[in-house]
Amino acid sequence: MPARIYRPARTAMSSGTAKTKQWVLDYANETAREVDPLMGWTSLADTQTQVHLHFDTKEEALAYAKEHGIDAVVTEPQERKLNVRPGGYGENFATNRRGSWTH
């Protein structure tokens, strides 16, 4: 069963990095989704896609996949630059500002 190993990106709604440190192994869909004719819900016959395994390192995830005969594809994360301002948030309220604070 094919799987992918990746490190999740941060959510678009926050600037924090929670839940982005561990590596995740997800299984790929083996069958197509089916639409229930009565309710209109989509469903899958394969329950393996609900399994998300978390690992501390990429090597642990690869070792697990190799040990269990899983064909895994590793997706490397794109590292982002830190956006740290020199003065920080407190600079907005500094008493020694050069110009008047307008908003």
Rank of each mutant, 00 (worst) to 15 (best):
P2A: 02
P2H: 02
P2K: 11
P2W: 05
Y6C: 02
Y6M: 05
Y6S: 11
R7C: 00
R7V: 02
A9N: 13
A9F: 06
T11K: 11
A12F: 05
M13S: 14
M13N: 14
S15M: 05
T17E: 07
K19I: 01
T20Q: 03
T20C: 05
T20A: 07
K21T: 04
Q22K: 13
V24C: 08
V24D: 01
L25P: 03
L25F: 00
L25A: 00
D26I: 02
Y27Q: 06
Y27P: 03
A28R: 03
A28M: 12
N29D: 13
E30N: 09
E30P: 04
T31I: 12
A32W: 14
E34M: 04
V35W: 12
D36G: 12
L38V: 15
M39A: 15
G40V: 03
W41R: 14
W41Y: 15
T42M: 15
T42K: 14
S43Y: 15
S43C: 14
L44N: 08
L44S: 10
L44V: 07
A45L: 13
D46H: 07
D46A: 11
D46S: 09
T47E: 15
T47Y: 12
Q48D: 14
Q48V: 11
Q48G: 09
T49P: 03
T49C: 08
T49D: 01
Q50Y: 10
Q50R: 13
V51A: 11
V51L: 08
H52I: 02
H52E: 11
L53Q: 08
H54W: 13
H54T: 12
F55H: 04
D56M: 09
T57G: 05
K58L: 06
E59P: 00
E60L: 12
E60T: 04
A61D: 05
L62I: 09
L62T: 02
L62E: 12
A63K: 12
A63S: 10
Y64V: 00
Y64L: 07
K66W: 04
K66L: 05
G69K: 09
I70N: 03
D71C: 07
V73N: 12
V73T: 15
T75C: 01
E76G: 03
E76N: 10
E76T: 05
P77T: 07
Q78G: 08
Q78S: 07
E79Q: 10
K81G: 08
L82Y: 09
L82K: 09
N83W: 10
N83L: 06
V84G: 00
V84W: 03
R85D: 12
R85Y: 10
R85F: 12
P86H: 03
P86F: 01
G87W: 09
G87R: 11
G88W: 05
G88F: 06
Y89P: 05
N92W: 14
A94G: 05
A94Q: 06
A94M: 06
A94L: 04
T95G: 14
T95F: 11
N96F: 06
N96C: 04
N96V: 07
R97G: 09
R97Q: 11
R97C: 05
R98V: 11
R98Q: 10
R98S: 10
G99W: 06
S100E: 14
S100T: 14
W101H: 15
W101I: 15
H103T: 13
H103I: 13
